[in-house]
């Protein structure tokens, strides 16, 4: 869907991107992971022509974006910028409805859209009249994401959109994003330097360092095959982050149920990471879980396999 061909970019003498050659698939979440200053935001900005490359070309559905009119391209791409950049003189509602207004939607549709987006982003309805200066950092970020989604764009560029949120809200919004994605199948390019966030969200993971792309692959593959590489990004606990992506309800279809059971069991829909945590706490390598009145046995040694199979689905 989006295709970079030998793209380079420099600010003055400062080379920021060197010979980038990568494709981003339609309908997937592609996460760009990399240390600060490696050029992630720059890569994102190239996609909607916020900046132009010095060399190379970028194709959108096989069409060179140089040939697409600026405003047409930009209006069809939602962009939640890193600095949030809410318009200070507009209320939350006006901020969110900016693109729909530019697209000349009618008022009723816009109102409904704003309401739905605010609900999705866990923003109370009373916030619609607030001005950005009265929002906390996390609230402002969520408004920024809602604003990027408002025009119902095919492509979404999200630059560390959950950076300022507390872990609980961040987790909630990450799940929400996954849920929305299940229904809408947008092409999302998501920038982060948080490994667990990257592994949780990514269908496809791009590792970046020093102006170039080190590796682009399925997150499971990167975790298992490029362990050493990933370690330089994070430290060694990334298997947990991978397990966090799946909940019991996601993987039960790969298990055969038990006939009958009465003893200790986990009956909440928790993530596989939490299952491991429970195993460590209890000192057991097997635990029973309940899902929809059915009992299943989970084995420590099979967990990674389950995750792997799920990943390749």
């Amino acid at each position: 869907m989006i295709h970079f061909k030998n793209v380079s970019k420099a600010y003055g003498d400062h080379q920021v991107l060197k010979d980038i050659d990568v494709s981003i698939n339609k309908g997937e979440i592609t996460v760009i992971l990399g240390p600060s200053g490696c050029g992630k935001s720059t890569l994102l900005k190239l996609i909607n022509k916020t900046i132009l490359p010095d060399e190379g070309d970028i194709y959108l559905n096989k069409q060179n974006i140089r040939d697409i009119q600026d405003t047409t391209l930009k209006r069809s791409i939602g962009y939640a910028i890193q600095g949030v950049g809410l318009f200070p003189h507009m209320s939350v509602k006006e901020n969110i409805s900016t693109v729909p207004k530019l697209l000349k939607w009618d008022k009723r549709t816009i109102d409904n859209r704003v309401q739905a987006l605010m609900e999705m982003m866990e923003l109370p309805e009373t916030f619609s009249k607030k001005y950005p200066i009265h929002l906390s950092g996390g609230e402002a970020q969520r408004v920024g994401v809602a604003r990027a989604l408002a025009g119902n764009p095919e492509i979404l560029l999200m630059d560390e959109p959950f950076g300022a949120l507390d872990p609980i809200t961040r987790g909630k919004l990450q799940r929400k994003l996954l849920n929305i994605q299940k229904k809408l199948h947008k092409t999302i390019v998501f920038v982060t330097h948080d490994v667990s966030e990257a592994l949780l969200l990514a269908d496809e993971l791009i590792l970046m360092k020093d102006q170039s792309i080190l590796k682009k692959d399925h997150p499971y593959k990167i975790v298992t095959e490029a362990k050493a590489l990933l370690k330089t990004f994070t430290g060694g606990s990334f298997a947990f982050e991978l397990l966090e992506k799946f909940r019991i309800s996601d993987i039960v279809d790969q298990l055969t149920g038990l006939q009958d059971f009465d003893g200790y069991c986990l009956h909440e829909d928790i993530s596989l990471k939490e299952v491991v945590s429970e195993m460590i706490l209890q000192g057991k390598s097997q635990l029973t879980v309940r899902n929809n009145h059915q009992y299943y046995r989970l084995d420590f040694y099979s967990l990674m396999d389950l995750a792997k199979r799920k990943h390749y689905e």
């Binding site: 916020t50 930009k74 910028i81 890193q82 950049g85 318009f87 200070p88 900016t98």
Partner: peptide, 13 residues
């Protein structure tokens, strides 16, 4: 703020 202008332009204004 620079970010405000970038967002505005990125929205296709």
């Amino acid at each position: 703020s620079r970010d405000v202008i970038i967002s505005a332009e990125a929205m296709g204004m």
